[in-house]
Design a protein around this nucleic acid. Structure first.
Lengths: 243, 243
DNA sequence: CGTAGGTTTGACTGATCTCAAGTTTGGTGG
DNA sequence: CCACCAAACTTGAGATCAGTCAAACCTACG
């Protein structure tokens, strides 16, 4: 499915519509934004720690993640991103990136000059509010991740990550929560949960044994959501989204 | 040291001045905000998960933290807060609190009606930008905490928490980075680092043995910052602050 | 059909947790 | 000012979850 230029800003409008109440004048302003549609291959760094912002990227197709590393080489994924997500909003107001943004599949994204993004945030109060709210939801998700890696055991941690991924896919209109393809490797799941790939493999096996998920290649089917949610200790309130 | 009404909004103005460029008209608008100065004892909940916002609190004296809990009773502190910090900005745009805010010492705070806070954020673009930037910095700190709890060992974790605390105290103009009183218990340090109090006690002892800190009651002296920073893997970039 | 990346499995190690008993500290009331 | 109490901190010993290392096994793709 190729993305044409018309689709691109429509995705952004849809995202902002989910984040807050917009009038037609706001939507028109978004549609009038200058932008380019670009692609990048799997594993490509869209932004590196220390970069200055020149463009603001909106993910259109594929999946990406934010990563940070310790000086001793430990790698931590701090969030996953999917179609519709605005990837570097924080660069509008902070001078330098404090983390990397990396594609985990081949990706397509719209690149809007940061200056134009800043301008519509200043000129359109409802867009300002929607974008600010997006920043706040991001922060809420990070708080939940601190709890997840800080206080849950390996099974709950992995299950929680999967629940969030499923719930956000649905909220973004990308499909059902019951069955989906996992775009990330077990190494990446390990990096997101603060575990090792060996434990992730064993944990996924156990979740299968528990009868709450079925796996087939990268496809995952949640066969018992109620029980899966219990194991994951997942409460979607922190996502602050409908759907 | 008692806080009078004049001091209260001055603290807020100073905080916003650190967050972005303000004109006198902006400062006047802040000083004209209606507010009440309130106090709460140690351990008091200022906001509970699920609460709706009616007021926006700015911490004037004392220390507070944000906490989340797992359904099995695990408790995680996701941030510490000190004088000048705006405690529940996210409630301006999100309908319900997704975490608790709790005093860790006796606290004094200014309580501003959320509606008025929302109003000046709408009417004064520079204040809007400063507050939005504050939200972004919050998010950056949470990302660093995910890394801290997910990928550092106990010694680096505890040391990193202390480094951040020291650096933020200095940035907030509360004293030196070399010597300060720790307002939190070892149980609270454990809750912030995803460890247990027993390990925190042993880790602090080890940091003493390493010759990088000296402890006397709750007083901590960093005797070798360079080495302490190395152990902690601390790089203050993520705080996005001067000082 | 060969290779590389990803996943699974096994055996062993070790950091952190748990439980439990002491010790110190700080606040309170006599 | 001192005695007492509760909370916080320290210390020890044993248990456990997750980490490490290494080999084998898939599977996708050139």
């Amino acid at each position: 499915m190729a993305i044409d230029d018309n689709d691109a800003l429509t995705k952004v409008v849809q995202k902002l519509d989910r984040l807050g109440y917009l009038e037609d004048s706001d939507r028109d302003a978004v549609r009038a934004l200058p932008f380019e549609v670009k692609t990048a291959p799997k594993d490509h760094f869209l932004i590196r720690e220390g970069d200055e912002a020149t463009d603001c990227c909106v993910l259109l197709e594929g999946y990406a993640c934010r990563t940070k590393t310790t000086s001793s080489g430990g790698r931590q994924i701090v969030s996953f991103h999917m179609s519709g997500d605005i990837l570097d909003l924080q660069l509008l107001l902070l001078s330098r990136a404090d983390h990397n943004i990396q594609a985990i599949t081949d990706v397509t994204f719209a690149s809007v000059p940061a200056a134009d993004m800043r301008r519509i945030a200043q000129e359109y109060p409802r867009i300002n509010e929607a974008l600010w709210r997006d920043t706040m939801i991001d922060a809420s998700v990070f708080r939940e991740w601190v709890l997840n890696v800080g206080r849950r055991d390996s099974k709950a941690r992995v299950a929680h990550m999967l629940c969030e991924f499923a719930a956000r896919r649905v909220a973004a209109g990308l499909g059902s929560a019951e069955r989906f393809e996992l775009p990330m490797t077990q190494q990446q799941i390990a990096d997101a949960t603060g575990l090792t790939p060996v434990i992730v493999s064993r944990t996924l096996y156990e979740l299968g044994q528990d009868g709450v998920i079925l796996r087939d290649q990268n496809e995952v089917e949640i066969t018992d959501w109620a029980r899966f949610r219990d194991i994951a200790d997942f409460d979607r309130t922190y996502l602050h989204s409908e759907g």
